[in-house]
């Protein structure tokens, strides 16, 4: 009985009907009574089938709606992660550009300008200033280039993490 689950009562009715059909000496009135009962049980079963089908469809609908909501939230989350990655990469690129600029400035002060002075004599401020101007102008392209390279690396890392997560999920 227990293995018949939620339909144990219905299974018992079916067993009863099958036992009844195996009987030989059954009166017409008994047949009539039994058919009446079968009709009543059938009606009950039909009601159950209708209800369970509706409930099941509704549950499916509920799950579909939840899935749609979950997908929207995932997209929202991904967009936020992308924005955060972009901000982080932007900060790193600015830092790199600043370090390069400081490096170039030091080279300009310590190497280039003494070279100019020794080659062209003192008083060539214009050339030194122009060199510093070039360094300043280079700042933005250096930052953009670093940002692009760092973003490429971050996307590659995110993709490899996604693939390994998928593999882990598939394995479990």
């Amino acid at each position: 009985m227990a293995k018949k689950g939620v339909f144990e009562k219905e299974s018992a009715i079916l067993d009863h009907m099958q036992n009844f059909l195996e009987k030989d000496d059954v009166k017409d009135e008994d047949y009539k009574e039994e058919i009446k009962q079968v009709s009543r049980y059938y009606e009950e079963l039909l009601d159950q089938a209708k209800l369970i089908t509706k409930v099941s469809d509704r549950l499916q609908n509920k799950l579909n709606n939840l899935n749609a909501k979950l997908n929207d939230k995932n997209i929202e989350l991904q967009n936020t992660i992308d924005e955060l990655t972009k901000a982080r990469v932007g900060r790193r690129a600015t830092t790199i550009a600043l370090f390069v600029a400081v490096g170039l400035f030091l080279i300009s002060e310590g190497v280039v300008e003494p070279q100019i002075e020794s080659a062209l004599g003192p008083g060539n401020f214009g050339l030194g200033l122009a060199f510093k101007g070039v360094i300043a102008l280079l700042l933005k392209p250096i930052e953009t280039l670093s940002e692009k390279l760092l973003m490429k690396r971050a996307l590659k890392e995110a993709e490899s993490k996604r693939v390994s997560d998928q593999r882990l999920a598939a394995a479990s």
Partner: peptide
């Protein structure tokens, strides 16, 4: 709040 398909049958049994 929520019930699965087999619970719906049992709830119907209670109501009956």
């Amino acid at each position: 709040e929520y019930f699965n398909t087999s619970s719906s049958k049992c709830i119907l049994d209670i109501f009956k």
